[in-house]
Write a protein that binds this DNA or RNA. Structure first.
Lengths: 185, 185
DNA sequence: GAAAAAAGTTGAAGTCATTCAAGTTTGCAG
DNA sequence: CTGCAAACTTGAATGACTTCAACTTTTTTC
């Protein structure tokens, strides 16, 4: 993780990692199938933490659909760069798309699924409290919200100089737009 | 394009392409910066066609928000595999994320932007006809619809055995769910 | 405690994208 | 037509991931 954060993914050679771990190149390959697996393993650590923090919000969301959704989303975003660089996110995303059949690709997509489910859980909780209209399918709608926050996050890591406040503003505008139409009838 | 469609992207060597073009490896690199650029160039051809076909639908959408949105989206999906394999899509997507600064990465993302804008245009047209409530921001809402159709398409190309009808059904459920709340008040 | 099996380690070799210095062809001005 | 510049072509060299056969160490069995 230290080496991936310090320099570009491409510039980190397996030989460097092997040296840091005081083993040979072959031994690295005994524990990780590919270079990408090593990166995904570190990214997964971070996402697990993010999911854990999200559980607290879903268990006791603030009142108001817009406020509650944004609290969860901002929490995701704020945690995202704690240990990972934008480049690490980009590389992990690319790997999960390019090599979907590999264990690490599947692992990354499973984390995505769990994040989407967490958003759906929040929508369902809000609906139970009467803050979201009852005729909306909470699971499908939660997924759509996740697609949006996920896409905006992808644009954020792809544009190297976009800031976290700019990302928050963009998602804020879209959630506000939706909030207008999902209130109870 | 022939070689990329026939076998895995990885298994197509620059030397193979050079041989087919009756030039040397170095000459290939005189016309394309990287192997990925060659792929993106072929994918871009396809997306331009898809955009062109979409313009006709936006110019004269069928009545009903749900029907109109689905007609545009299904048109995208049905065209997507005409010349490109799922693996080509995956590789192009991965490249555009991994190497966002390169000309080909930017080119791919620009195509994405234009597709999103086309969906927004359709929403605006429906709004002008009174089929979508006026207090919705058409541009932002159109983008959110695009995020969903784009994410579902990514899942489609990532899961090798998901069929086109299954993809259509998935997006259909999500658009139907939205259609319930975006009608005029 | 000895033998056998399993697990772990190694680094040289293979493969392929990419680079580059040298050579070749084309276009153009006088 | 001549000479020069620009554009194009070439394929061997480079660098990095990945594989693999040989070797060591650890664990299990009897």
């Amino acid at each position: 993780m230290t080496q991936f954060r310090a320099g570009a993914y491409r510039s980190v050679r397996i030989e460097d990692l092997a040296e840091a771990a005081q083993v040979s190149v072959g031994t690295v390959y005994n524990y990780y199938r590919t270079k990408g697996d090593i990166l995904i393993a570190t990214v997964a650590l971070e996402v697990e933490e993010i999911l854990e923090a999200g559980r607290a919000i879903v268990a006791d969301p603030p009142s108001g659909a817009e406020t509650a959704l944004l609290q969860l989303i901002f929490q995701y975003y704020d945690h995202s760069l704690e240990y990972l660089s934008k480049e690490m996110w980009r590389t992990a995303m690319a790997l999960s798309i390019e090599a979907p059949g590999t264990p690490s690709g599947q692992r990354y997509r499973d984390l995505d699924r769990r994040l989407a489910a967490q958003v759906s859980d929040l929508v369902a909780a809000l609906q139970a409290r009467g803050e979201v209209r009852a005729d909306l399918d909470a699971a499908l709608f939660g997924e759509m919200v996740f697609h949006t926050l996920d896409t905006l996050f992808r644009e954020f890591v792809v544009v190297e100089d976009m800031t976290l406040p700019a990302l928050r503003a963009r998602v804020g505008a879209r959630i506000a737009n939706l909030a207008r139409v999902i209130g109870p009838v």
